[in-house]
Amino acid sequence: MKIDNDTVDKIAHLARLEINETERQEMATDMGKILDFMAKLNEVDTSGVEPLVYMTEIVNSVREDVVKQEISHEEALENAPSHDADYFRVAKVIG
């Protein structure tokens, strides 16, 4: 399938791309190749093929959320490089 420059320009505009004439020609060629490949895929007989929903048959196993070890507020602050009585102190990152 042949892609014209207007189509390439419209797609570039939608994608917020700035392209020059050389890139426009390359993109038109590449898009044409992609559409030709898709047309070939449409020729394949898939009448007996089940739709693929998941890539594997593995079922996600989720463990129970159980607290295994608790530390106190004071113990959490002990290893902090900087803290006050109740909170971790960090450098200001937003002006």
Rank of each mutant, 00 (worst) to 15 (best):
D84V: 02
R63G: 07
V53S: 10
A15W: 06
N42S: 05
I58T: 10
S61Q: 05
E26D: 02
M55T: 14
N79E: 05
N20A: 04
N5G: 14
I11N: 00
D84S: 02
H13D: 15
Q69D: 08
S61K: 11
T29W: 03
V44W: 00
T46P: 15
A15N: 12
Q25T: 15
M38A: 01
P81V: 00
L35A: 06
G48H: 13
I3P: 08
R24Y: 00
G32Y: 04
T56Q: 10
A15E: 14
G32N: 07
V93S: 14
H73Y: 06
I94N: 01
T56F: 05
V62C: 04
S82A: 12
Y54C: 05
S61Y: 05
I3E: 11
A28C: 15
V49I: 09
E23T: 10
D30I: 13
D36Q: 05
V67L: 01
E75L: 01
L35V: 09
M38P: 00
N60H: 06
M1G: 14
S72H: 14
K10T: 13
E57I: 11
E21A: 12
E50C: 04
D6F: 07
R24H: 03
E43W: 09
E75P: 08
N60F: 13
N42H: 12
M38Y: 01
I34A: 15
R24N: 05
G48L: 10
S72G: 13
F88E: 04
F88N: 04
L14P: 03
K68I: 03
V44M: 00
L77V: 00
S47G: 07
T7D: 05
D9E: 15
E70Y: 02
A15G: 13
D86R: 10
L14E: 15
I58N: 04
V66F: 01
T22V: 09
H83N: 10
D65A: 07
L14N: 09
V93Q: 10
E74V: 11
D30S: 06
Q69V: 09
I94V: 10
K40N: 03
V67K: 00
E26H: 04
A15R: 12
I11V: 01
H83W: 03
D86T: 07
T29S: 13
